[in-house]
Design a binder for these strands. Structure first.
Lengths: 211, 211
DNA sequence: TCCTGTGAATTAGTTCACAGCG
DNA sequence: CGCTGTGAACTAATTCACAGGA
């Protein structure tokens, strides 16, 4: 669909622009400048225009961007014009928090299954989601036509679970386990490591004052 | 303490190297090569050596790095040789998950307080943490000598809370609210947006096949 | 006139490649 | 000989600056 390889940083910013466009849309704004979007997103107007220019020319010179039309474009670019079935692999507290995370549903990500290996958890419910047995992982992935997995399992179990997810047909993984996952070419993995985020803060705290 | 400005990506990788060093240490390995570290961390040996070289020469040519000594160095660099008092601003499910997150404590981040605005939550306990009233935010920050805040509050409340945190003396914020926070120069803010992570995956899913 | 779209310039980050030390 | 440490080369990302259309 697209010639050039787009930087991850660009894709992230597009997702952020979309948030603010929706906010503007809600406030009834018809049009928005790259400058205004940049201010909200914490970047520069040149960056906004460059990011958008990889995908087309959506603005009107002298005017800016039509808020609604640009939102539609960004949803198309980001693949948010349809819904995705998501499984939670691991049913700990973090998984429980993610189930409730309204923003996922609002963006088209439906958490339709959760599994765990703890017999005490299997069969219990989170709203209308029944926690399944991890032994049935492949069956559940296929039955529910799951494309995305959120991995919130212990580090030592992670790779084996990923191998099973891959062979069951999952094509993207959001990984919260602090390990480097190995997946076949073409699969997409995104790592989130909350402890690492805190550590970059402690680094910054320590190296402050050199301003 | 350091002349050059170090890239965020470098600091993150150092935190990741530290994880694997501790694992190696646990397994009784005395020495490790940049190649072995890189394999675990999902990067290249040149990257590992370059990252470390910003801070000093920690290896022995022909041998590699002493696992324990390098771990000590990285903890020093990252500011992990002491403990930090952390407050959770917002006591929703995500906050509840973070309280339990063992890795935080293991790295020196002690969650010593949590506040919320919901009267139904105020006074309830999570382990030995009593949820306080957000009205007392400044008092709590000062009493507990808090340096880092984890902001897990609704987007519309976020900026006002940040202003209060800043004036109460907090110096770093890990922000889960999907807004761009404005803080005075010198303050450190790190944003985590889980919906954006999923959206980069849906982008990747959609633009697959051009390989 | 205003603000986009975009090549060009700049800056940042990564990889190469090899000298040099243990 | 093996593996680090590091300039130099390269690649990627951001910012500049301005031509050009509404």
């Amino acid at each position: 669909m697209l010639a050039r390889k787009i930087a991850d940083s660009t894709v992230r910013r597009l997702a952020i622009y979309l948030r603010f466009l929706e906010e503007f849309e809600h406030q009834g704004a018809g049009t928005v400048s790259s400058e205004a979007l940049a201010a909200r997103a914490g970047t520069t107007s040149a960056q906004v225009r460059k990011d958008l220019s990889f995908f087309g020319s959506f603005g009107k010179r002298g005017l800016g961007y039509d808020v609604h039309a640009l939102a539609v474009q960004l949803r198309t670019i980001l693949g948010l014009t349809r819904r995705y079935h998501v499984i939670l692999v691991g049913a700990g507290r973090l998984a429980g928090a993610l189930v409730q995370y309204a923003e996922f549903g609002a963006r088209g990500f439906d958490i339709v299954a959760a599994v765990d290996r703890d017999p005490a958890k299997i069969g219990t419910r989170w709203g209308d989601l029944v926690i399944g047995n991890v032994a049935d992982l492949e069956k559940i992935v296929q039955r529910e036509q799951i494309e995305i997995a959120i991995l919130v399992a212990p580090a030592d179990a992670a790779q084996a679970l990923v191998d099973r997810l891959v062979s069951a047909g999952v094509s993207a993984i959001l990984n919260f386990a602090p390990v480097q996952l190995h997946v076949p070419h073409g699969m997409d993995v995104k790592n989130v490591n909350l402890a690492v985020e805190l550590e970059t803060l402690s680094y910054a705290l320590q190296h402050r004052g050199s301003t």
